[in-house]
């Protein structure tokens, strides 16, 4: 009988806390295989763009472009927010499945796990933005300088992190697959209130007063600022504030949960 003892001293710790491209690739594959996510990411925002983007006055000037460009950025923002919220809510579902506990039995650092999930949310948000932009370019109504086109897409992408955090938070509060059933209509409502679907100046004064406080208003203004060259200070406060609040909420729920990993 051979005694092959395992020598602990020969074992190595993986670099970067277990960060690797294989896992990133598999996580993306999972998202793209999920029919619901694909509908949210690729189909819905593009369909909304086609619906809203051709309304009367689409070629009226807006900032350094036209109204169609304004609507395009808004739809890209909406699609990306929805997508990253879906990615975020998956974190809580994995926890409910015991997958997070399984991962704790590997060298993967929990912070690296969140970093990888954030990257997946960014890539998925990026795909959503890209699809809306490609459809917009194909339709040919949106008009804005290329640098504005790129800048607004990048800013919208960064703004999606707010909704990735919101997704994690809601995923913890409402476990299982129900999270998206709340996030879907909820984000649509916030998008109406935040001026993504209908410009705020078409609302009654009291509705607009409320809208300024809602989470979609800030990021929408920020994402469109390369086009409009307008950015009220309270919109920036709104965007930063809600981001901080959702991250804090997600972190709070996650830390409460680690007690029984």
């Amino acid at each position: 009988m051979s005694t092959v003892t395992i020598d602990p001293n020969t074992r190595r710790v993986p670099p970067l806390g277990g960060f690797n491209l294989t896992v990133l690739g598999l996580e993306l594959k999972r998202m793209l295989r999920n029919r619901r996510t694909v509908i949210f990411t690729l189909v819905l925002p593009a369909a909304l763009l086609l619906t809203f983007g051709g309304q009367d006055g689409w070629d009226d000037p807006a900032g350094s472009g036209n109204v169609a460009a304004y609507i395009l950025i808004s739809m890209a923002m909406y699609g990306a927010a929805l997508t990253s919220a879906a990615t975020g809510s998956a974190v809580a579902m994995e926890r409910a499945l015991g997958w997070s506990r399984q991962l704790r039995l590997t060298p993967l650092n929990p912070v690296v796990y969140i970093v990888m999930k954030t990257l997946v949310a960014l890539v998925m948000g990026g795909i959503a933005i890209l699809v809306v932009n490609l459809v917009g370019a194909f339709v040919g109504k949106a008009d804005m300088p290329v640098d504005v086109w790129v800048a607004s897409a990048v800013v919208a992408l960064l703004c999606t992190l707010t909704f990735a955090a919101l997704g994690v938070f809601v995923g913890y509060v409402v476990p299982g697959e129900n999270a998206m059933q709340i996030l879907g209509p909820g984000l649509a409502l916030l998008s109406f209130l935040g001026g993504l679907f209908i410009p705020l100046d078409q609302y009654a004064d009291w509705v607009r007063e409320i809208a300024y406080w809602t989470p979609m208003y800030g990021v929408a203004e920020v994402a469109r600022s390369p086009l409009t060259h307008e950015l009220p200070w309270y919109a920036v406060i709104n965007a930063v504030g809600w981001f901080a609040l959702f991250v804090a909420g997600a972190a709070w729920r996650m830390s409460k949960d680690t007690a029984r990993v």
């Binding site: 395992i6 602990p8 074992r11 190595r12 710790v13 999972r30 994995e94 499945l97 015991g98 997958w99 506990r101 399984q102 039995l105 590997t106 060298p107």
Partner: peptide
């Protein structure tokens, strides 16, 4: 270092 593993009774799979 991959020196310890565990098998859970249920769950833990995607």
């Amino acid at each position: 270092r991959g020196l310890v593993s565990a098998v859970m009774q249920t769950g833990g799979l995607l």
